[in-house]
Design a binder for these strands. Structure first.
Lengths: 191, 191
DNA sequence: GTCTATAGCTTGATAGAC
DNA sequence: GTCTATCAAGCTATAGAC
């Protein structure tokens, strides 16, 4: 009810940023406390099991961000339109997306059973949802699944390549366009 | 000339493994010394600038591994054959490749200017080389470049998805085949 | 080249007052 | 709920003997 009602949420928010920026191991409980503007001891009041408990809740905030772009592309008129919309939407949130993806890859080995289970559950939900969306245009289920894998692999690879590694196009090559890559890979007319 | 001639190389070898397994930050100089079988002080004899200097040389060993798979697929008779050969070869070394890729993604933000420059130089060399290989079958340069980007993005995405995250295929779906994904994305006959 | 010893710092976590 | 104070354990790095 007071305006400090959300110390806990604030801790998660600050911790997310720090974990993404510096990694879990390199972020100290002190750093988090400083960011929030309280002492370390106060953190241990809110999260009895300490740093690990904070990670767990951060995962529950960040992992959904990884997959949610997809859901927002319902009601496209065709596969072309869906792919165009998807890649536009993905590029909009790319910087965030790239950070979260890089973080997820880095931190995944440190995840415990619970965090992994949560990740797989979200991934699986989104995959099914995506396949259903694609089946409107590609009725054959196996083919729709393959389409989804291609979109997902290209998206992940593209993000890693051009955002995490910040690869510039080579001297000869103009900027690489995600939409064009996806269109070519799915044999759609170029955007 | 003695059999301890390569203490230095041994340090790099052990450090590479530990950095990949636990990350740079979480690997202590003590861990490396223990793995090598000497004291920390001895490490500081071989690497005057300490842990950081070790990272620099580890990068020079690991980054080339990331890209070298590609080079080994010369002299294929067709694009189909090249892609088939490439994905077979990549799957052979996939575990290593996945580990090194995950490590590179994780550690990239900690790289200094020199390490980044080294990374980009290798990446650029391999990209050019790959484009030339593809141009035997796809003479148009822009199209050959796009082909390479598609192969690279799908490979990276596939590795991250199925090795770094260890995503199992969903209930409905059979195992996802890298070669099939690449063939479909490049409009080649399925393998 | 390799060792022992240690300086000087940061870490995650807790006890106990308010 | 939040604080001060403190802890043991860990860290990188160096000095100096052999």
């Amino acid at each position: 009810m007071t305006d400090k009602i959300n110390r806990r949420g604030e801790i998660i928010r600050v911790a997310s940023q720090l974990f993404i920026k510096n990694g879990y191991e390199s972020t100290s409980v002190r750093d988090i406390a400083a960011g929030v503007g309280c002492t370390e001891a106060a953190l241990y009041y809110h999260f009895k099991s300490g740093k690990r408990a904070i990670l767990k809740e951060v995962v529950e905030v960040l992992v959904p961000m990884l997959f949610n772009v997809i859901v927002e592309c319902r009601d496209a008129a065709s596969l072309d339109a869906l792919v165009a919309q998807y890649s536009r939407r993905l590029l909009d949130v790319m910087s965030d997306q790239a950070e979260v993806l890089r973080w997820a890859v880095s931190e995944f080995p440190n995840f415990g059973e619970e965090e992994r289970a949560f990740f797989y559950e979200k991934q699986s939900m989104i995959f099914s949802h995506f396949v259903e969306m694609i089946q409107r245009y590609v009725p054959d289920r196996a083919e729709a699944q393959q389409t989804v894998w291609i979109i997902m692999c290209i998206s992940i690879g593209y993000i890693q390549m051009f955002y995490s590694f910040n690869v510039k196009s080579t001297p000869y090559g103009q900027q690489v366009h995600l939409g064009a890559l996806l269109a070519r890979a799915l044999s759609l007319p170029p955007p």
